[in-house]
Nucleic acid binder design. Structure first.
Lengths: 225, 225
DNA sequence: CTACACCGAGAGCACTGCTCTCGAACTGAC
DNA sequence: GTCAGTTCGAGAGCAGTGCTCTCGGTGTAG
């Protein structure tokens, strides 16, 4: 059982993360100030270093939490009983909705990596959650026989064994080409949301919501859902 | 004719931009320090403010220059005499190649917007250059009759008139749905390159080059090239 | 009860963007 | 050619940052 000290330590760590996330939501990752977090909590800036050895470590924690809440949103939006194309669209919508609700967090996850920062391995499992959801939609569709037969050919595999496990697993109607299309589709989802969020489509669209749905449907068609 | 003072002012401005771009390439936009630029040029930091009113203005200049060199690379890669699908692939390859050669500049253009920074209108024409190239490929294909006939239907237009002008212009075989697919394809190009550059595909691919070509070919098929 | 690990606070360092002021240099009008 | 007016570079200075170190006070394990 945890001692009183460990308990209060966890508690304060949580308060720091919470304050940091608030600040992240307000001013963005680049302007996130460890001193401001300390001020908000009424403690000396140096005290924060007892909990996070550096600003980057605090950011890492926020990144992991961000991937987790985004992944949870995607999982919650997926109804395994629905048809594949609807599942795909629902998950895409959930990701977009989360991105709109947490733009700075989304930018932290999928925007430019921060200066000298290299994502530590801890972030990988959390980052994979959304991919796992989309991969499961693909795999379920394959197992249900809802996917077109692969055309075959195409040379050596482009998708690694690790990625195969995420992208629906092994199945006769899932070949390397189908998985390449799945990776492309996922990249396109990300590109679409980022373009919209980062302002690259300003003035080009009359209705962002309808455009997104139509674009995601095109992608579903592309991967055969 | 420019006076001597104006000439030396332009010259020094150019040196500042050059030094800033060097630093941008090394440490990235977030760590770009105006004082370090001044040090590299052997001048006082306050002197730089005679040329750029703020760090953000210097960044804006770098953004415009970045869009311009990227746009020039895309234009140079486009051979109007080649078949549409080849033109599309060539331009995509050029964009990816530029991104790999200038990762920090690419991140500045297409990654998360910097903190409190809002892209000024000056950047818009430069930013549109790549889109114009891809739009021309689409328009030329339409005028050559190389595009499938539109299926029709789909409700009110999703693409604005401004964007229509960029995306190949008006043509019977280019309807709103085709332009939506074009926007989606361009977003997908960006998403693919960003995923690769920002490390989101690490461990998923055996051959990034071949994957990119295959993915871009799928996109060309999607938009009917 | 005591020795020890832990923790908060404060001072301080090196750095940042940015402002202000003060001479020096250049420029255009007379 | 002189002289006012503009431009420019340099320096000092302010407020802010990440981070380190040291110094007491406090909870904890033996």
């Amino acid at each position: 059982m945890p001692t009183a000290r460990e308990r209060v330590r966890l508690e304060i760590t949580g308060e720091i993360v919470e304050a940091a996330r608030r600040q992240l939501a307000e001013v963005g990752a680049a302007a996130l100030s460890l001193r401001a977090v300390a001020r908000e909590l009424g403690m000396a800036s140096s005290a924060v270093y007892r909990y996070f050895p550096s600003r980057d470590d605090l950011l890492t924690r926020l990144i992991i939490d961000g991937y987790d809440t985004l992944g949870a949103a995607a999982e919650a939006a997926d109804d395994p009983a629905a048809p594949p194309a609807e599942r795909w669209l629902a998950v895409c919508r959930a990701v977009r909705s989360w991105a709109h609700g947490h733009p700075h967090e989304y930018a932290l996850l999928y925007g430019s990596p921060v200066p000298g920062y290299a994502a530590p391995p801890d972030t990988v499992p959390a980052a994979a959650r959304v991919g796992v959801v989309l991969g499961r939609v693909l795999g379920d569709a394959a197992r249900a026989g809802a996917l077109p037969e692969p055309a075959g050919g195409g040379g050596p595999a482009l998708v690694t064994a690790e990625a195969v496990a995420v992208l629906g697993g092994e199945h006769p109607s899932l070949d390397d080409a189908a998985r390449v299309r799945a990776l492309l589709a996922w990249s396109a989802v990300y590109g679409t949301i980022s373009f919209e969020l980062f302002g690259h489509l300003v003035g080009s669209l009359t209705d962002g919501d309808r455009y997104f749905d139509r674009a995601m449907s095109e992608l579903a068609r592309l991967i055969g859902l």
